[in-house]
Simulated assay, not measured.
Amino acid sequence: MNSKILSVSVIVFLAFLTIIEGMSLRGLAVDPRCRCIETESRRIGKHIESVELFPPSPHCKDTEIIATLKSTGQEVCLDPSAPWVKKVIEKIIANKKP
């Protein structure tokens, strides 16, 4: 009987730790997975209002580039291997250098 109680207690404790860890990551505005499932490779440069670049992290091995569109405010994931996206990234990096 005691071993069953101990086993259930350990399982409940581990589940609690898992839930708390997931909540703490979201509370820090860290998503525990990649943001981009699909990427856009077509040229949409004239529709872009802003671009955010997210380097690889422990939660996502990919570099993610998220553009916000002017007209709708919708966020679109861009394909980092598309030639026009590479040029956008180069311009962003060049503008950030002092």
Rank of each mutant, 00 (worst) to 15 (best):
I93L: 13
H47I: 02
F54G: 00
L69T: 05
I93G: 00
A67D: 01
I89K: 09
I11M: 11
P98T: 08
Q74N: 10
S9T: 15
V10I: 15
T72F: 07
L14G: 03
F16H: 08
C36H: 09
F16S: 09
S50V: 04
L14K: 05
V12I: 15
S50E: 06
H59R: 06
V76S: 01
I93R: 12
G22I: 09
E64L: 02
R33M: 02
D79K: 07
G45Q: 15
S41R: 13
F13N: 06
Q74A: 12
I66V: 14
L6G: 01
S3I: 15
S81E: 14
I37G: 05
C77G: 07
S71R: 15
V85H: 03
R43A: 12
P83Y: 11
D79V: 07
I92E: 02
W84R: 03
L53I: 14
T72R: 04
L78Q: 02
E49L: 14
I92F: 06
K70D: 02
V10N: 03
S7E: 10
G73E: 04
D31K: 07
K87I: 14
T39M: 07
G45T: 15
V12R: 04
V30A: 01
P56A: 09
V85L: 07
R42Y: 11
N2E: 15
I19G: 00
I44E: 06
V10W: 13
A15L: 13
V30E: 01
I48S: 03
L69K: 00
V88D: 02
P83C: 06
A94W: 13
D31S: 05
K70P: 00
P80A: 08
E52F: 07
F16E: 04
S7N: 12
K91A: 05
P80G: 00
R33P: 00
V88C: 03
G73S: 07
I92D: 04
E52I: 09
K61C: 03
P58C: 06
D31C: 00
P80C: 07
H59Q: 10
N2V: 15
S7C: 13
C36I: 12
R33W: 10
I48A: 04
T39C: 07
L69Q: 02
S3P: 08
K61G: 02
T18P: 01
K4Q: 11
S24L: 14
N95H: 10
L17T: 11
A15E: 10
F54I: 10
G27K: 10
K61M: 12
K46W: 14
S7P: 01
K86T: 06
G45C: 13
S81L: 12
K96Q: 05
V10L: 14
I11Y: 14
E49M: 09
T72G: 03
V12S: 08
K96N: 05
S3G: 03
V8L: 15
I48Q: 02
W84M: 06
V8D: 08
C34R: 02
V76E: 02
H59E: 10
P80K: 04
L53V: 14
L25C: 04
T72S: 15
V10E: 08
V30F: 03
T68E: 11
H47D: 12
L14N: 05
I19N: 01
